[in-house]
Design a protein around this nucleic acid. Structure first.
Lengths: 215, 215
DNA sequence: ACTTGTCCTGTCATGCCGTCAGCTTACCGA
DNA sequence: TCGGTAAGCTGACGGCATGACAGGACAAGT
């Protein structure tokens, strides 16, 4: 199902080819974190990878194509974020811990993939379906788990029926993603990382359970 | 203090010049909403405005410079968002109305300036101080008002002292901005606009007052 | 050594960028 | 009415990234 890695013109890539390809991806990833997406040029990536622009075009149709590749890879890892929610308890003290761990895990993931997520976000916001799909893939894993959590609490009568589970989960996840994407921004605002996390956890807790947390 | 409008090489722009300049800005704005930022070319903007690329460079150092201009304009309007919070009540039924109106006003503003805000967001996320400053200008107006609201409630003993007012306000505003930026996304997710807004308002209410709303 | 298929690069046409000199247009005072 | 002056615009150009191709370099098997 994975299919072999192929060049643009259809050849299958061998050991050496795959190495080159990977090197190009790595260099592109680095470039994205050090300079604006708009200014990333194929020639720079190629130079950095110690090869030529022509080689780049053997493996990717354009810069965007390569970015999608990196993003896809990241999305696979992102699917693991489900673990932060599924099977956790949303009752009593455990709920507070769940909230905290969710926030921690989420922010950490975002910080690790900072640069590429920015580009994915932009692509998605601009309406590009491919980027949108990737963003979905990452966020869905968390959103769906959270949606289930809310529905479960609703079934037990612990949360108002009026609340739209999906909208609530989606909003919270969007918040986490946004804050994560502007972490640097908050510091300039005079908000320290240390106070940010508990507040996010508090909002998550409030949103999901509708109650103040018991710590 | 406003200073006259000047060309890149220092001449003051007259009536005709200002008109051309404005036309270029308008066309750039349109282009941004119809095609990805990365693909916006000076030549396209110029053609659309019925002029030549050289003319564009008379008025703006580059595409980014022009975008900043548009963004600055929008930021002025955005300062008015303060009205959505300052002087409003966060007690009882009034609090729920305040929340709803804040969400409404915010989402509306974002929808109106959709395209340009996307670019500003990207620029800010990439660490460009100029874009960051503009984003601040818009969000600060709301964030500061919200921060004050929380502090006031804390002074009255209605909200826990532990809560960091700034972090809470910042997180909520980031959430609103994020959701607003991906409004289309939510619909694909099976979440309707109609259920989104009340949920956001609920989260805002919960975050600021720490309590469930009285409707 | 020879063949085969993979892999890389030199080169080229194309098109956009950003700049300049120089032409046209509008305004203003005499 | 008529220059003079500054504003406004554009054609043209060097420079650079893009993307396509053909041919050379390389590894592996025979």
């Amino acid at each position: 199902m994975t299919g072999q890695v192929r060049t643009v013109d259809g050849r299958v890539a061998g050991r050496r080819g795959q190495a080159t390809r990977q090197k190009l991806l790595d260099c592109l990833g680095e470039m994205l974190s050090s300079s604006p997406y708009r200014d990333v040029k194929v020639i720079d990536v190629a130079r950095k990878a110690g090869t030529s622009p022509a080689t780049f075009y053997q493996y990717f149709p354009d810069v965007e194509g390569a970015v999608l590749e990196i993003a896809e890879e990241m999305a696979k890892e992102g699917a693991g974020l489900t673990e932060l929610v599924s099977g956790r308890s949303w009752v009593g003290k455990a709920a507070w811990q769940t909230s905290e761990e969710l926030v921690d895990g989420f922010l950490d993931f975002w910080r690790r993939h900072d640069a590429i997520l920015r580009v994915v976000d932009l692509g998605a916001a601009e309406g590009d379906k491919r980027f949108y799909k990737i963003r979905m893939k990452i966020l869905n894993s968390v959103t769906n788990s959270l949606t289930d959590a809310v529905k479960e609490l609703q079934a037990k009568g612990k949360v108002d029926k009026e609340v739209s589970a999906a909208a609530m989960a989606g909003s919270l996840v969007a918040m986490l993603a946004a804050v994560a994407g502007h972490q640097k921004g908050f510091t300039t605002w005079g908000v320290k990382q240390a106070e940010l996390k508990p507040n996010l956890a508090l909002l998550v807790h409030l949103g999901i359970t509708g109650k103040k947390p018991v710590r």
